[in-house]
């Protein structure tokens, strides 16, 4: 693989190579944890940390890993990191970890992780792999946060847990949109984000 600049590794996944909207990976957690911004942020952070460090570890070990069991090795590394993150959340961010429930554990099955490990970390030096992991984690987080922003604002009338829609609105008959709290709306929002992104970056439109 040709050498790519580290800055590109960081910036590409944010837009043109976005893991969620372009590669359409990691959708299930994007639906489940985006009801509010805080859990979405913590989820994005967890995924970024796990992707970055598993990429670093796998890349450092890449020459010693036997090819026949490489997927298992990757899985074990990812699983171990996910368990550590999960345990840390339970100990220090209990209320958020309650909201995230099983979805932190399910980071193990997040396709973004395995995809980056197989496609990048197995063939690149540790530092670029680390950067690539962070980039993809951030790309995922951005989408999660934008969905969570809309869902929390319209679904609960708040941002980051703070009520921002003035009570006057409610007296005038405004109501929070219950559909925003349900997962189907997250699918529709992802669809709309993909729609917007593709009308903006025409090169992403498939022929």
């Amino acid at each position: 693989m040709a050498q790519v600049k580290n800055s590109k590794l960081l910036a590409n996944p944010l837009n043109l190579q976005n893991p969620v909207t372009v590669q359409v990976l990691g959708i299930c957690s994007a639906l489940a944890v985006t009801v509010q911004m805080k859990p979405a942020f913590v989820m994005g952070l967890s995924v970024t940390i796990v992707t970055a460090f598993s990429s670093l570890i796998i890349s450092a070990l890449r020459n010693t890993i036997p090819n026949r069991i490489r997927i298992i090795v990757q899985l074990v590394v990812v699983a171990a990191l996910v368990i550590i993150v999960d345990q840390l959340l339970k100990a220090f961010l209990y209320d958020v970890s309650k909201q995230l429930s099983v979805f932190v554990g399910l980071i193990i099955t997040n396709c973004i992780l395995m995809g980056r490990l197989e496609a990048f970390a197995m063939g690149n030096k540790p530092f670029p792999s680390f950067i690539d992991g962070i980039g993809n984690g951030l790309g995922y987080s951005i989408i999660l946060l934008s969905i969570a922003f809309v869902r929390e604002l319209l679904g609960s009338g708040s941002i980051w847990g703070f009520k921002i829609i003035p009570p006057v609105f409610y007296q005038l008959g405004y109501e929070n949109n219950g559909l925003m709290i349900l997962p189907p709306m997250a699918v529709i929002l992802i669809g709309i984000i993909i729609w917007i992104q593709r009308s903006w970056k025409k090169e992403l439109i498939e022929k």
Binding site: E175, N177, G178, L179, M180, L182, P184
Partner: peptide, 10 residues
């Protein structure tokens, strides 16, 4: 369906 799920109380 939209109103049914978004504003169930209405």
């Amino acid at each position: 369906a939209f109103i049914f799920f978004a504003y169930p109380s209405k």
